[in-house]
Design a protein around this nucleic acid. Structure first.
Lengths: 301, 301
DNA sequence: ATCTATTAGTTGACAAAAGCAAGCATCTTG
DNA sequence: CAAGATGCTTGCTTTTGTCAACTAATAGAT
């Protein structure tokens, strides 16, 4: 099935589901359009009629009538503000807030009922998938955080290195084996004082990694920097490398070194921008294909 | 943010988006309710009015009128079937099919435009997340397939073993290190004729794994059987183990052995059901916590 | 400062969408 | 075969949404 068809299928599916949900939440005293206005007003606090029009995608005339109705019921109040006397700030009256609370509660309950029959792993999966859909469609960076590694993370690093470098550069399974060995060794010999692995998360899902390992008492090595293709361009790599520099300095290292490949231009640009200098360059075939490895380093003073 | 709130946020977000999409696709000649009927009829082929009522969630009277309108326009034909003379099977006329094709095409184009501005990794992410949402909400198993391992898979196996066994049994990072070593070794020493790793996929995402490795010329070993919590109960484990048995037999092994833990009841039941017999049992602390390891085997004849 | 265009909101008239109930023919079930 | 259920239609009604005209206030241009 093509991507377009998959998306259409989902739309059809979710359209119907939303129909069911809104019908349900309509069951609570107010007709749907009124409830929508009430709800929006409750969520936003105070706003003008034209904002409501835009947000709820309603005709201005229609909205005017809806608001008039709510005012008659004593749920909404209109205060004339000083700024612009054409506009009128709409707010919920205490009675309106009460109605909103009821609506809010019943909508929450409906969602709860939707989640209730699902097993906990399914619930988590659902929430995660929903926030992924939303992030992608809103084309916003999502919420990015860094954290120390936890069970499952090193395997994730191995997996994504294997997949991404095979997709992009055809490095094959041998590279994944190599990263696997590095990862396993990191876990076995982990020196919590002088070593660290960070995972970048976006909307609760890992999207990037970087490691600092001890090369000698004074030299730290940065390894396994990776940012998922779909998370690139949001400064994740920069944050990860910065974190390494800060940690290495604070851990008392004098130098931070790394090994990278000449064709990884994004990474190289990042290292250069953060003060690393290339000190050596050497062709090799470690990953099955001919590459030029580069040694970069940063003095931490 | 709680799960319920996250779901509500998504609903609000997607409700609005669907509004935009349907408005757009309404731009194409037919009023929305008629278009919906036409569309459903085109998708389903032929069906009765009452089925359309149920599927489109429309009042029977209203639907009757919509269909009458479409018939007047020569888009829909009603044939009286032999079975039940109350019912009338509705079909699209050639003209109706043409109208449907136009609708279909314009809806497809609208989706295409939604996807167009997204970078390819985002598109894939979106499609995958949508199908995950749908699978979970429909509580259906999703589409399960087995396949041989590819770049990224071994890392995934390591990651999920590390995470799942830590979540469920607190085996910690040491276990992930162990699996990492096993995985790396598997990749390094992979004997394509006598060894195999399978990944179970559900809706395009990995949800399970199993390995067969050579223990001796006549004995194969089953390792690293895992099914994601959210994919359990759909027979994934059974399919994976079956695959191992079939492969081992076909590869000429005489015996298939495995090592498991006494507290992994689901796995043990599965092994027993498929003919394995427990041959030995021994306490150990390999994973940091006290466990009883069990050796099981199956004669392949 | 004054004129013009724009914006915020209201109102009347109307069309589209949807719901309800009565009714008819047909089928199912006891 | 009677009683009730089902599939569909029709008349009547309400709800929802649209359009255009209109007022009041503001912003921008000359």
């Amino acid at each position: 099935m093509s991507r377009v068809d998959a998306v259409r299928r989902f739309n059809r599916f979710y359209t119907r589901r939303i129909g069911v949900l809104t019908d349900d939440y309509l069951g609570s005293a107010f007709p749907l359009p009124q409830a929508r206005v009430l709800y929006e007003l409750g969520e936003r606090g105070e706003c003008t009629a034209s904002q409501l029009c835009a947000d709820l995608d309603l005709d201005a005339g229609y909205l005017s009538r809806l608001v008039a109705g709510l005012r008659r019921q004593g749920l909404v109040a209109a205060e004339a503000p000083s700024e612009d006397r054409r506009r009128r700030h709409l707010t919920l009256t205490p009675k309106g807030r009460k109605a909103f609370a009821t609506l809010d509660e019943s909508s929450r309950r409906a969602m709860g009922e939707m989640l209730a029959p699902l097993a906990p792993p399914h619930r988590d999966k659902l929430v995660q998938a929903m926030s992924a859909v939303q992030s992608v469609l809103e084309s916003r960076p999502g919420n990015i955080t860094l954290r120390a590694h936890r069970p499952g993370d090193i395997g994730w690093v191995i997996s994504r290195h294997g997949k991404v470098y095979d997709d992009e550069y055809r490095w094959g399974l041998g590279f994944e084996a190599l990263v696997g060995e590095i990862g396993a060794k990191f876990l076995r010999e982990f020196d919590a004082k002088r070593e660290r692995a960070w995972i970048a998360q976006m909307d609760g899902e890992p999207v990037g990694s970087v490691f600092v390992v001890k090369q000698s008492a004074t030299v730290a090595k940065l390894r396994l920097l990776l940012v998922e293709p779909h998370a690139r361009g949001y400064g994740v790599g920069r944050r990860l490398v910065r974190q390494c520099i800060d940690f290495s300095r604070q851990a008392g290292y004098r130098k931070l070194v790394l090994w990278t490949q000449s064709n990884l231009t994004a990474a190289r640009a990042l290292y250069a921008a953060l003060g690393f200098r290339k000190v050596k360059s050497q062709p090799h075939r470690e990953f099955g294909v001919p590459l030029t490895g580069e040694y970069w380093e940063l003095n931490l003073k």
